[in-house]
Amino acid sequence: MHEAVIEAAGEKMKNLSYKLFSDLNLDDVFFDSLKADYKEFVDWFKKKAKEGARGYAFFKSNGKLDGFLFLKIEEGIVGDVEPPLPAAKHLKIGTLKINAHGTKLGERFIKKIFDHAIDANVDDIYVTAFEKHEGLINLLKRYGFVEHAKKETKNGTEMVLLRNLHELSGDVLLDFPFISLEDKDCYLLAIYPEYHTKFLPDSILNNESHDIVTDVSHTNSIHKVYISGIHRTNKMKRGDVLVIYRTSDKKGPAYYRSVATSIGVVEEVRKINSFASETAFVKYAKPYSIFTDIELKNYYATKQRSYIIRFVYNAALTKRVTRGRLMGEAGLPTAKGIRWDFLNLSNEQLRNIATMGEVNENIIID
C-alpha cells in the first residue's frame, strides 16, 4: 500500500511523529488514494489500530496528515510474490505515502527505513507498488532497490522492489547507508559550531544514546553540501569517508568540548569557479546546504570558500567522541602545531572512532 513522489528541498520541516494508528483520522483525505488503490485498506487500517500498531506520520501546520510510513519485520519465506523471497529476516515497507509540497520528506522517510533495517539487522527490505507510482519507485531505486518480483492481488499487479543488505555495488548511493573502506581514503573535517548546529542541533551533542524512533530532522537528511576554504579538501574523491568534527564552542577546553559527531561518504568535490553562474551555484548548493541564499551568493562573489563538498550523511555517532578521546584512544595526533581542520585518517582510526561513537558495526564494511 504505497504512494509517493520525489521531494525537493524547500520549507523548514518539523519532526516525524511515531503515532498509534488509533490516533490517526482514517477519514483524512490523505488516505483517499490508498482506499482507492486497495479495497481492503479500511479494514486493514482498523485491524492495525486495534493491535496497537504504530507508524511514522508527518503533519502539515494545519494538522492535516502529509506523509505516513508503516514498517514490519517478517521472518521466513515471502511466498505471496513471484518469484518468492527466500527464507530470511525481512523489513517490509507496509505503507508509504508522501504528498508533494516542496520538502525533503521522501528522503527523511528513506533514512528512517534504513535506520530500522540496520537496528533490526534484517537481511533485506522490500516493498510492493503499482507501476503508476513512478515517484516512489524512482526514489527507492536511487538508494539501491531493484525490481525483483511481481505480486498478483485483487487490486491488480504490483511490482516488488527489493534492497538486499548483503550485496554491495560499490556506488555511494546504491550502497547507502553502508560504508566501504576498501581502496578509500578517510579524513576528519572540522566544522565551526555555528555551522555545525545546522547539521545537528547542539541539544543532542551530548553523551546520551538516542532511541531509534526519535526523529531529529538534521540527522535524517541523506545528502549534505558543505563549502570549505581548505585547499586540501580538493583531493577528496567519490567514495572517500569523512568524520565530521565540531570544533570547540568555547564553553570549556577543546579537549572536552570539540567532538566527532558523524560519518559520511563523499559524493563529489567541486571548485566554486566550476559553476557557470551564481544561479547555477545556488541551485546546486541550496537544497542540501547549511548556508543561506545570502551566504551562498557572497561565497560565489568573493570565492573566499572555494571547495564545494557534497557528501552522503551515513551515520550520526550516538556517543559524541571528544578531542581528548580522539587523541588518547583513536590515535589522532597530539603534537602541537598540527591543525585539525582537515586530517588524514587511517582505516583503523576511522573504525576506532565509529566504535567509540557506537555506530552500528554492520554499517562499516571491509
Rank of each mutant, 00 (worst) to 15 (best):
N314K: 01
R323W: 07
S262F: 00
K150A: 12
K286G: 05
D185N: 15
V81Q: 06
P86T: 03
H101G: 08
F145T: 01
K92R: 15
R305H: 12
N347W: 06
I230Q: 10
L200T: 14
Y255M: 12
M327Q: 15
G239S: 09
A330G: 09
I263V: 14
E107T: 12
L96E: 02
T247F: 03
R323L: 14
A149K: 06
A88E: 08
D202G: 13
N298Y: 13
E107Y: 10
T279A: 15
N155T: 11
R351Y: 09
P193F: 02
D27L: 08
L161V: 00
D123S: 12
N344E: 13
A57S: 13
Y288I: 00
K64C: 05
K72G: 08
K89D: 01
A57E: 06
D123L: 04
L296I: 05
P253R: 00
L65F: 03
V127T: 11
T95E: 07
N220Y: 01
L162V: 08
S248I: 08
D202F: 10
F114G: 05
V146I: 11
G55R: 04
A149C: 07
K48M: 11
L26F: 04
V29Q: 09
G337A: 06
E348D: 13
L317D: 02
I309Y: 03
Y299R: 09
P83S: 09
K224Q: 13
Y245M: 00
Y313E: 09
H133S: 13
V265Y: 08
N273H: 12
Y38V: 07
V78N: 02
K39W: 03
G55T: 03
P177M: 01
